[in-house]
Design a protein around this nucleic acid. Structure first.
Lengths: 225, 225
DNA sequence: ATGATTAGATAGTGCCACTCTCCAACCAGA
DNA sequence: TCTGGTTGGAGAGTGGCACTATCTAATCAT
């Protein structure tokens, strides 16, 4: 198909598709002539994935390129590629401080992982993300003790088990990796939305059970998005 | 204290503090003379909260102002304020489409909430965030059936219960609201980091249990903040 | 008195995801 | 073969946003 058709079927403007092609997020189309190229279903799928990463996952374009490159890197085994791809996904501003809060956060993070029976990989982006997040909590004076974190960890473990089972159902290795990346990113807002809904539910239950439950006013106040 | 001291104790530059004052994220200091103002511990606390919202939670400055205004709005009851404040928090790009995917996502979302015994509030930002996230999954062809979502929902419910208990421990209503907002935002990266760690753990367990667990390559490949 | 500091206002910077504009090559119809 | 619309490609431009640099007048310390 032509670029314009790719645009129509994906809902992404031709200018943006060109931009993605330029940035290497999409492989170039098959050149028909010097000034025309042909795109196939694979391009469409990839384009939708890119859109999901960039729009939903707020992944910077440069990062998305790295992630996709890792997914396609034929020179590594699948587990390495998965690690590289997911590790390249954004993980919040890693405010690397050497202060007391960071140090305490580091100890807490390790303890949590130990208690959950997880391996500890100090350089892991997610590990560092955890530490810097905990450090922020500590600096603000909010509790982040191991016992408080374990419920989160157990919830995460349950979710991850479920997700990996899902990913395992895909057959082709590259499709599996794509699915892993997509699900990692796309289920983040799902999880966060469910958490907020659960919070509203629980808040209504605890504080003012009679009314529309702490989300109603938000329904009136919403106007951004 | 003076602005410079506020800056020193918070680690935020005076220029940025001035910017926040201008934008209404911080109440003005108590005017000592025409060109000098005095700030107290309350300002410091608020400043740190703002930093957490903006830096960790990636809350736009304009949105942070609304959230904080809701927290301080004395004219509403606490539950309303909580709903308004949390509802104003960013919840991803709400791509309001009228297509088939959105419609199916809406039905799925309602079904999930019904199965979990939650109230359904159609206008709720979190509800709409859930729908648009699910719609994206559907458009990409990834599974998002009710049975797949329930584990997430149950995990969220457990977390929310735990969080509300934590919030309930704060005494002053405004402090409670501040804590609710702060914890909602600040525990998001914690939860996401734990999920990724759990994924790495589970991936290592399933795919290549012998090695350093699918996070090692990421440790080598990491180089971005 | 005098140099440093401060609050406040205005304009500028840097980043980043697009988006506009242009050009040469191509295709369809006459 | 001409001609007018369309396509792919490349570089520059745009807009939004979180700061940040600069300036001015008032005030404080010495």
């Amino acid at each position: 198909m032509r670029l314009s058709e790719l645009s129509k079927r994906s809902g992404v403007s031709t200018a943006t598709i060109k931009y993605y092609l330029r940035e290497g997020l999409l492989p170039p189309g098959e050149r028909i002539t010097a000034t025309q190229a042909d795109y196939d279903e694979e391009h469409l799928r990839r384009l939708r994935l890119v859109r999901a990463l960039v729009q939903v996952g707020r992944v910077p374009v440069a990062t998305a390129r790295e992630v996709l490159a890792a997914v396609e890197d034929e020179s590594s085994d699948q587990l390495s590629r998965l690690g590289t791809a997911v590790g390249a996904l954004p993980h919040g501003p890693t405010t690397t401080g050497d202060d007391a809060a960071t140090e305490r956060a580091g100890r807490t993070a390790e303890e949590v992982q130990r208690r959950l029976g997880w391996r500890i990989v100090p350089g892991n982006p997610a590990h560092r993300m955890l530490i810097s997040s905990l450090a922020t909590l500590i600096r603000l004076g909010y509790p982040c003790e191991v016992d408080h974190l374990l419920p989160y960890g157990r919830a995460a473990a349950g979710i991850a088990e479920h997700e990996l089972a899902l990913i395992g159902e895909f057959e082709a290795p590259t499709t599996q990796l794509e699915a892993a990346v997509a699900l990692t990113v796309l289920y983040e807002p799902v999880l966060l939305a469910l958490r907020r809904l659960a919070q509203a539910e629980e808040a209504g239950r605890r504080f003012g059970a009679n009314r529309g439950a702490g989300a109603d006013p938000a329904a009136d106040a919403e106007g951004e998005g």
